[in-house]
């Protein structure tokens, strides 16, 4: 079968309409998880099928698509998804955050502030922030309906009692517009402050769990915390060894069998842009810096 046998952006029009309706409801009720009849995709559940369906429903022929996984454009699954859309939607792709109109991401929000013309699509494995406290869908749905989020606060408080701090470092729950508690997908909590007040449209797709949710631009998003234990979006206390950035989220890379390690930006577009601009880090070749 040739690629021409498939529709623009792979999905058939009836499926796209169904996803599009869910996306619009999601925007109208920020943070609420809209059920949608997720389809089997040609990649496995858990590998970004929710994000891929959302992206497929949003793409126009004029879009420029960027796909990142762990902040990087070159991670294998990001490459695979980018190729899928190059093939099925013939859209332009880019690795530069500022050039992209649609960005599909797994586990990161780009370092560079997003703008009004952009859509950020998150791949979500477990959309229900209460799932690990209450495994039953019928129960968690009721808890959201009644705005009954005591269990979540109890869990966070138990963390503080045991560890002296909240022991959640990624997929850190947030409250949206003072109403719905939402799972921001497994982004590091370092990225949480970028969820609120963002100029871009943020869309979340969970394929296997059949849920879509959304944050319109400039939505009020607050990471859950306590007055005496305020939310702390911490990161490794280092600068990037390649571009010297002290404010970006870092990957720790083990470089030999003696446990030597270096720190580099997880956002590869941000890091290479900075290096091109002449910024240097501890490991930059000497004399090359501008």
């Amino acid at each position: 079968m040739t690629d021409q046998a498939y529709n623009f952006a792979y999905l058939d029009e009836a499926t796209k309409r169904m996803i599009r309706r869910a996306l619009l409801k999601g925007l109208a009720i920020p943070g609420y998880q809209v059920p949608f009849a997720s389809r089997e995709m040609p990649m496995p559940y858990g590998w970004g099928t929710g994000g891929v369906q959302v992206t497929a429903a949003c793409l126009t022929p004029e879009d420029t698509l960027k796909v990142i996984d762990q902040g990087a454009d070159d991670t294998t699954n990001a490459v695979s998804i980018r190729k899928f859309f190059e093939r099925t939607a013939q859209v332009q792709t880019s690795e530069t955050t500022a050039e992209a109109t649609v960005i599909q991401t797994r586990h990161r929000i780009p370092e560079v502030a997003l703008t009004e013309g952009q859509i950020l699509v998150y791949q979500v494995p477990i959309p229900e922030p209460l799932r690990f406290l209450e495994p039953r869908e019928s129960e968690t749905r009721r808890m959201h309906a009644l705005e009954e989020y005591g269990l979540m606060h109890v869990k966070l408080y138990e963390d503080i009692a045991r560890h002296g701090a909240i022991a959640t470092s990624y997929a850190y729950p947030v409250k949206v517009e003072g109403r719905y508690v939402m799972d921001p997908s497994p982004i590091p909590k370092f990225d949480n402050p970028k969820l609120g007040g963002n100029a871009a449209i943020q869309l979340f797709g969970a394929g296997r769990e059949q849920r879509i949710y959304a944050l319109p631009p400039y939505t009020d998003v607050v990471s859950l915390d306590f007055e005496d234990h305020p939310f702390d979006p911490s990161k490794a206390d280092h600068a990037c060894d390649l571009c010297g950035s002290e404010v970006s989220y870092l990957d720790e890379v083990i470089t030999d069998d003696k446990g030597s390690r270096i720190f580099v930006c997880s956002d590869t577009s941000y890091c290479t842009t900075r290096q091109d601009e002449g910024h240097t880090g501890r490991l930059s070749p000497e004399g090359e810096a501008a």
Partner: peptide, 22 residues
């Protein structure tokens, strides 16, 4: 089931990094 099970083969270094820091 198999999709979600096997997705833990995908890179998780951003999450793991945040766990390391914690």
């Amino acid at each position: 089931a198999t999709g979600f099970l096997e997705h833990i083969k995908l890179p998780h270094y951003v999450d793991f990094q945040s766990e390391l820091e914690l």
